[in-house]
């Protein structure tokens, strides 16, 4: 195992985060805080409780998940896309480093950044809303597992993308709508029966449901099923990355 290489990539990526701290950390934290102010404090005070939880507290897991998914994809996709764009990918490809080590470096750094952003958002939420965490161990586990899974997904997008527009397409046109429709702001039990069934096809529902369960002990779907869905998605992403490195798709001619 080339630990020096993993460390070099990891440090390089984190250094990029500190260099662009306004964009990497301040921006998602500020925009999510605005959700707390608008939906939590302003509108939330006029909403009824959902599953025994105040509306302002109810939306916290969903908003953290929204930021986590967006940041994980964005960090990992940009991390691997940028060397392709500026040509420095030659160095990664010519180094004595395996597929596993490249993924550990890039995805490890993207996961770290996302978990930092998620944690700051949770701390910031405490300024606006009272909430508690019923299962801290599972909350941290879901946070890390989701960040890692979607960082892997972002890594695939970064390799697939051949322009900046494509980098934005999946997060903007697929992930964000799925997160908004995945129960970030409501319980899916509030939907008509037909829409409840359709919503279950949205993978983000399982993420938000499991994460919310770790806070308040209530979930839209069975927690075991949610964990299984996250692991299935993780497996799909790992398979995709294995295929990319085996074939050299968009990396090697």
């Amino acid at each position: 195992m080339n630990f020096h290489a993993i460390k070099a990539i990891y440090k390089f990526e984190l250094h990029r985060t500190w260099r662009t701290i306004m964009q990497s950390i301040a921006s998602p934290v500020i925009s999510t805080s605005l959700y707390f102010v608008v939906f939590g404090s302003a509108i939330g005070s006029r909403m009824v409780e959902i599953d025994g939880v105040s509306y302002a507290a109810f939306i916290i897991p969903g908003l953290v998940m929204l930021a986590l998914l967006t940041e994980s994809i964005s960090n990992a996709s940009f991390g691997i896309y940028f060397p392709k764009y500026n040509g420095t990918i030659y160095e990664i490809l010519s180094a004595p480093i395996s597929m596993r080590e490249i993924v550990l470096g890039y995805v490890g750094a993207a996961t770290t950044k996302s978990v930092i952003v998620g944690s700051i958002i949770l701390l910031t939420a405490n300024l606006f809303v009272d909430y508690h965490v019923a299962h801290p161990f599972w909350m941290v586990t879901f946070l890390i597992l989701t960040a890692a899974t979607f960082s892997l997904f972002g890594f695939i997008i970064g390799i697939w993308a051949d322009g900046f527009e494509k980098l934005q397409v999946v997060p903007m046109l697929i992930v964000t709508p799925l997160t908004f429709l995945g129960g970030s702001f409501y319980s899916i039990s509030m939907l008509p029966p037909l829409w409840q069934s359709i919503t279950l096809a949205n993978p983000v529902v399982y993420l938000i449901s499991a994460f919310r369960w770790s806070f308040y002990g209530v979930a839209d779907v069975n927690v075991g099923l949610s964990v299984a869905m996250i692991l299935v998605f993780l497996g799909l992403c790992l398979t995709g990355i294995y295929w990319i490195f085996r074939t050299g798709y968009r990396l090697k001619t």
Binding site: N2, H4, A5, K7, A8, I9, K11, F12, H15, R16, R19, F82, P83, N86, T88, E91, I92, A95, P96, I97
Partner: peptide
């Protein structure tokens, strides 16, 4: 990588090669 300093990019390369 234009945003990096000379010394950090050279150190990065050394690490990358183990």
């Amino acid at each position: 990588d234009g945003f990096e300093s000379v010394i950090s990019t050279v150190n990065f390369s050394r690490g990358l090669f183990g």
